[in-house]
C-alpha cells in the first residue's frame, strides 16, 4: 500500500465486499446493502490510506487465538469459521486494526457462523486473487512479498 498514490476513492472497499459475495454482478450483489469490507480506507484531509491485513511474518493474532481458528497457510493468515468462538482477542490484539467483528446483515458471510472477518487475499472466495489490488485505479495497492 503506497499512500502516495491512494486517491481515497474507496473502490477497494466495494471490490472487496463484492468479492465476498461470490456474485457475478456488483450491482446485484451490493445494491441497497451495507458493506463490511475487509480493507478500509482511512482519510485525513488529502492523505488517504487503505488498511488491510499485512499477513505479518510473526502474527500476533495467530499467537493470541484461543481456539486455533487463525493459522498461517503459505504465508497467508487464514481464518477457520468453524473453530472461531467469537472471543475477539484477535480484534483487540491486531496492531493494524485489520480484523473486525463480522457485522450482522453485512454482505457475504461465506456460510454461517462467521464472527470475525479479515483479508484472506481473496483465496477464500471465487476471485482467487486480491480484488483490491486488481481494481485499484492508481496502483496504490500492490501485492508483493516484502520479506
Amino acid at each position: 500500500m503506497d499512500e502516495k498514490w491512494c486517491l481515497g476513492c474507496h473502490l477497494c472497499e466495494y471490490y472487496c465486499a463484492f468479492a465476498q459475495t461470490n456474485e457475478k454482478d456488483m450491482a446485484r450483489a451490493l445494491k441497497d446493502r451495507k458493506i463490511a469490507p475487509r480493507i478500509q480506507v482511512e482519510d485525513s484531509g488529502n492523505v488517504h490510506f487503505a488498511v488491510s491485513c499485512r499477513h505479518c511474518k510473526e502474527p500476533l493474532c495467530v499467537k493470541a487465538c484461543i481456539t486455533g481458528a487463525l493459522s498461517v497457510e503459505d504465508s497467508v493468515i487464514r481464518i477457520d469459521p468453524d473453530r472461531c468462538v467469537g472471543c475477539y482477542t484477535c480484534v483487540l490484539i491486531c496492531p493494524y486494526g485489520a480484523i473486525a467483528p463480522a457485522i450482522a446483515g453485512a454482505t457475504a458471510p461465506e456460510g454461517g457462523g462467521l464472527v470475525v472477518q479479515k483479508c484472506e487475499l481473496c483465496l477464500q472466495n471465487k476471485m482467487g486473487t486480491p480484488q483490491c489490488v486488481q481494481n485499484c485505479p492508481n496502483a496504490a495497492i500492490v501485492y508483493e512479498d516484502r520479506g
Partner: peptide, 13 residues
Amino acid sequence: ADRCVVCRVCERQ
C-alpha cells in the same frame, strides 16, 4: 438507479 450501489466514487473523484 438500478445499478448504482452508492459507493460515492463519482462524488469523490
